[in-house]
Amino acid sequence: MVYKIRDKETGKVYEVTIDEETNEITVYDVKTGKPVKTVNMTIEELKEAGYEVEPV
Results as ranks from 00 to 15, higher is better:
residue 1 M to L: 13
residue 1 M to K: 15
residue 1 M to I: 13
residue 1 M to C: 13
residue 1 M to W: 09
residue 1 M to D: 09
residue 1 M to H: 11
residue 1 M to S: 08
residue 1 M to Y: 11
residue 2 V to A: 11
residue 2 V to T: 11
residue 2 V to Q: 13
residue 2 V to F: 14
residue 2 V to W: 15
residue 2 V to R: 15
residue 3 Y to K: 08
residue 3 Y to A: 10
residue 3 Y to T: 09
residue 3 Y to S: 05
residue 3 Y to L: 09
residue 3 Y to V: 08
residue 4 K to L: 15
residue 4 K to S: 05
residue 4 K to V: 14
residue 4 K to H: 13
residue 4 K to I: 15
residue 5 I to C: 08
residue 5 I to D: 00
residue 5 I to K: 00
residue 5 I to H: 00
residue 5 I to A: 05
residue 5 I to E: 00
residue 6 R to H: 07
residue 6 R to Y: 12
residue 6 R to P: 00
residue 6 R to D: 00
residue 6 R to F: 10
residue 6 R to E: 05
residue 6 R to I: 15
residue 6 R to T: 15
residue 6 R to C: 09
residue 6 R to S: 06
residue 7 D to T: 00
residue 7 D to Y: 05
residue 7 D to S: 08
residue 7 D to H: 15
residue 8 K to N: 05
residue 8 K to W: 04
residue 8 K to S: 06
residue 8 K to A: 06
residue 8 K to G: 04
residue 8 K to V: 08
residue 8 K to L: 11
residue 9 E to C: 15
residue 9 E to V: 14
residue 9 E to A: 14
residue 9 E to M: 13
residue 9 E to L: 14
residue 9 E to R: 14
residue 10 T to K: 02
residue 10 T to A: 01
residue 10 T to P: 00
residue 10 T to F: 01
residue 10 T to C: 07
residue 10 T to R: 01
residue 11 G to P: 00
residue 11 G to V: 00
residue 11 G to I: 00
residue 11 G to A: 02
residue 11 G to M: 03
residue 11 G to T: 00
residue 11 G to F: 02
residue 11 G to R: 02
residue 11 G to N: 06
residue 12 K to W: 08
residue 12 K to C: 15
residue 12 K to I: 14
residue 12 K to P: 00
residue 12 K to T: 12
residue 12 K to R: 11
residue 12 K to E: 14
residue 12 K to D: 12
residue 13 V to C: 10
residue 13 V to Y: 10
residue 13 V to A: 05
residue 13 V to P: 01
residue 13 V to I: 12
residue 14 Y to C: 15
residue 14 Y to P: 00
residue 14 Y to Q: 01
residue 14 Y to M: 03
residue 14 Y to S: 01
residue 14 Y to G: 00
residue 14 Y to N: 01
residue 14 Y to T: 01
residue 14 Y to A: 01
residue 14 Y to I: 03
residue 15 E to I: 15
residue 15 E to D: 11
residue 15 E to F: 15
residue 15 E to W: 15
residue 15 E to K: 10
residue 15 E to S: 10
residue 15 E to Q: 12
residue 15 E to L: 15
residue 15 E to G: 10
residue 16 V to A: 14
residue 16 V to S: 01
residue 16 V to G: 05
residue 16 V to N: 00
residue 16 V to L: 09
residue 16 V to H: 00
residue 17 T to D: 03
residue 17 T to N: 05
residue 17 T to H: 13
residue 17 T to G: 04
residue 17 T to I: 11
residue 17 T to C: 09
residue 18 I to G: 00
residue 18 I to Q: 04
residue 18 I to F: 14
residue 18 I to H: 09
residue 18 I to K: 02
residue 18 I to N: 01
residue 18 I to E: 02
residue 18 I to L: 07
residue 18 I to M: 06
residue 19 D to Y: 06
residue 19 D to E: 05
residue 19 D to L: 05
residue 19 D to F: 07
residue 19 D to G: 03
residue 19 D to S: 08
residue 19 D to N: 15
residue 19 D to P: 00
residue 19 D to H: 07
residue 20 E to M: 12
residue 20 E to W: 14
residue 20 E to V: 12
residue 20 E to G: 10
residue 20 E to S: 12
residue 20 E to C: 13
residue 20 E to A: 13
residue 20 E to P: 14
residue 21 E to M: 11
residue 21 E to Q: 11
residue 21 E to G: 09
residue 21 E to Y: 11
residue 21 E to V: 12
residue 22 T to G: 06
residue 22 T to A: 12
residue 22 T to S: 12
residue 22 T to E: 05
residue 22 T to I: 07
residue 22 T to C: 11
residue 23 N to Q: 08
residue 23 N to S: 07
residue 23 N to Y: 05
residue 23 N to I: 05
residue 23 N to D: 07
residue 23 N to W: 07
residue 24 E to I: 14
residue 24 E to A: 10
residue 24 E to C: 13
residue 24 E to P: 01
residue 24 E to H: 11
residue 24 E to V: 14
residue 25 I to E: 00
residue 25 I to T: 03
residue 25 I to S: 02
residue 25 I to A: 04
residue 25 I to N: 00
residue 25 I to F: 03
residue 25 I to Q: 01
residue 26 T to Q: 05
residue 26 T to E: 02
residue 26 T to I: 10
residue 26 T to F: 08
residue 26 T to N: 05
residue 26 T to G: 02
residue 26 T to P: 00
residue 26 T to M: 06
residue 27 V to S: 03
residue 27 V to F: 15
residue 27 V to D: 00
residue 27 V to I: 15
residue 27 V to M: 15
residue 27 V to K: 01
residue 27 V to T: 02
residue 27 V to Y: 14
residue 28 Y to A: 03
residue 28 Y to F: 09
residue 28 Y to I: 11
residue 28 Y to K: 08
residue 28 Y to M: 10
residue 28 Y to V: 08
residue 29 D to A: 02
residue 29 D to E: 06
residue 29 D to H: 03
residue 29 D to T: 01
residue 29 D to S: 05
residue 29 D to P: 01
residue 29 D to R: 00
residue 29 D to L: 02
residue 29 D to V: 02
residue 30 V to Q: 11
residue 30 V to P: 15
residue 30 V to G: 09
residue 30 V to L: 07
residue 31 K to G: 12
residue 31 K to W: 11
residue 31 K to H: 14
residue 31 K to F: 14
residue 32 T to G: 03
residue 32 T to M: 03
residue 32 T to E: 06
residue 32 T to P: 01
residue 33 G to T: 02
residue 33 G to K: 08
residue 33 G to C: 12
residue 33 G to H: 09
residue 34 K to M: 13
residue 34 K to R: 12
residue 34 K to L: 13
residue 34 K to Q: 09
residue 34 K to V: 09
residue 34 K to N: 09
residue 34 K to I: 11
residue 35 P to Y: 13
residue 35 P to F: 12
residue 35 P to W: 12
residue 35 P to T: 08
residue 35 P to H: 10
residue 36 V to S: 05
residue 36 V to Y: 09
residue 36 V to I: 14
residue 36 V to C: 15
residue 36 V to K: 04
residue 36 V to D: 03
residue 37 K to L: 15
residue 37 K to P: 04
residue 37 K to N: 07
residue 37 K to G: 14
residue 37 K to Q: 08
residue 37 K to S: 08
residue 37 K to Y: 14
residue 37 K to H: 11
residue 38 T to Q: 07
residue 38 T to N: 06
residue 38 T to W: 14
residue 38 T to H: 08
residue 38 T to V: 11
residue 38 T to R: 11
residue 38 T to K: 13
residue 38 T to I: 10
residue 39 V to K: 04
residue 39 V to P: 04
residue 39 V to Y: 13
residue 39 V to M: 14
residue 40 N to M: 12
residue 40 N to G: 06
residue 40 N to S: 11
residue 40 N to L: 12
residue 40 N to C: 13
residue 41 M to T: 06
residue 41 M to E: 01
residue 41 M to C: 11
residue 42 T to M: 02
residue 42 T to C: 03
residue 42 T to Q: 02
residue 42 T to I: 01
residue 42 T to Y: 02
residue 42 T to H: 03
residue 43 I to N: 01
residue 43 I to A: 03
residue 43 I to Q: 02
residue 43 I to V: 07
residue 43 I to R: 04
residue 44 E to V: 09
residue 44 E to R: 09
residue 44 E to Q: 11
residue 44 E to G: 09
residue 44 E to I: 09
residue 44 E to C: 08
residue 44 E to F: 08
residue 44 E to W: 08
residue 44 E to P: 06
residue 45 E to N: 07
residue 45 E to Y: 06
residue 45 E to W: 06
residue 45 E to R: 07
residue 45 E to G: 08
residue 45 E to L: 06
residue 45 E to K: 08
residue 45 E to F: 06
residue 46 L to N: 00
residue 46 L to E: 00
residue 46 L to Y: 04
residue 46 L to A: 02
residue 46 L to S: 00
residue 46 L to H: 01
residue 46 L to Q: 00
residue 47 K to F: 10
residue 47 K to W: 10
residue 47 K to V: 11
residue 47 K to A: 10
residue 47 K to Y: 10
residue 48 E to S: 12
residue 48 E to F: 08
residue 48 E to K: 12
residue 48 E to V: 08
residue 48 E to Y: 08
residue 48 E to C: 08
residue 49 A to Y: 10
residue 49 A to P: 01
residue 49 A to N: 09
residue 49 A to V: 08
residue 50 G to W: 04
residue 50 G to D: 03
residue 50 G to F: 05
residue 50 G to A: 05
residue 50 G to I: 04
residue 51 Y to D: 01
residue 51 Y to H: 03
residue 51 Y to G: 01
residue 51 Y to N: 02
residue 51 Y to Q: 01
residue 51 Y to W: 14
residue 51 Y to T: 02
residue 51 Y to L: 03
residue 52 E to V: 07
residue 52 E to L: 06
residue 52 E to A: 06
residue 52 E to N: 04
residue 53 V to A: 04
residue 53 V to T: 04
residue 53 V to C: 06
residue 53 V to N: 01
residue 53 V to F: 09
residue 53 V to G: 02
residue 54 E to W: 15
residue 54 E to Y: 13
residue 54 E to T: 09
residue 54 E to Q: 08
residue 54 E to S: 10
residue 55 P to Y: 09
residue 55 P to D: 09
residue 55 P to F: 12
residue 56 V to I: 12
residue 56 V to C: 10
residue 56 V to F: 10
residue 56 V to S: 10
residue 56 V to P: 07
